[in-house]
Deep mutational scan, measured.
Amino acid sequence: DETGKFLVLALYDYQEKSPREVTMKKGDILTLLNSTNKDWWKVEVNGRQGFVPAAYVKFL
Rank of each mutant, 00 (worst) to 15 (best):
A10W: 03
V57M: 06
P19H: 10
E16A: 15
Q49T: 13
L32V: 13
K5L: 12
D28H: 04
T23D: 04
N46F: 07
V8F: 07
V52D: 00
L9C: 09
Q15V: 15
V43S: 00
V57L: 15
V57Q: 00
D1V: 14
W41Y: 12
A10Q: 01
F6K: 14
A54M: 05
R20A: 13
N34I: 07
L30S: 02
Y12L: 11
P19D: 14
E21T: 08
N34P: 03
K26I: 06
D28V: 04
G4N: 13
V52S: 00
I29Q: 05
N37C: 08
K38W: 06
F59E: 11
F51P: 00
K17I: 08
D39G: 08
V43I: 08
G27Q: 02
K58A: 14
Y56L: 13
Q15F: 14
A10N: 01
T3C: 13
W41Q: 01
Y14S: 01
N46K: 10
T23C: 05
L7V: 09
W41F: 10
A55Y: 10
Q49I: 15
T36Y: 10
W40P: 00
G50H: 01
E2G: 14
K17N: 12
K5R: 13
P19K: 09
K25V: 10
G50Y: 02
D28E: 10
L30K: 00
G50D: 00
V57F: 05
E2K: 13
V45D: 04
L30P: 01
V8T: 04
E21H: 06
V8P: 01
G50W: 02
L33N: 02
V57E: 00
A55M: 11
E2M: 13
A55L: 10
L30C: 10
D28P: 00
N37E: 11
R20P: 05
V45Y: 10
G27T: 02
N37V: 05
D13H: 05
S18L: 08
L11K: 08
S35K: 12
A54Q: 05
V45N: 11
W40S: 03
G27H: 04
K58H: 10
F6S: 12
K42F: 15
K25R: 14
K26W: 03
F6L: 13
R20V: 12
P53D: 01
R48V: 08
S35N: 15
Q15S: 11
Y14R: 02
K38S: 12
K25F: 09
E44P: 00
N37Y: 08
T23P: 07
P19G: 09
N46L: 07
S35R: 10
R20K: 13
K26T: 07
K25H: 10
E21R: 04
A55R: 13
E44F: 05
K42V: 14
Y14Q: 01
D39R: 10
R20W: 15
D13L: 02
D13G: 05
K26R: 11
T36F: 10
L33S: 02
L9K: 08
K5G: 12
F51A: 02
F59P: 14
E16L: 07
E44I: 08
Q49K: 10
F6I: 15
L32Q: 00
K26H: 06
L7Y: 15
T31N: 09
E21Q: 10
I29R: 06
K38T: 09
N37D: 15
A55E: 13
S18G: 13
S18Q: 08
T23H: 04
F51M: 09
R48L: 07
P53R: 03
K38C: 10
E21Y: 05
D39W: 13
R20E: 13
F6P: 12
G47S: 06
K58F: 09
A54S: 12
L33Y: 04
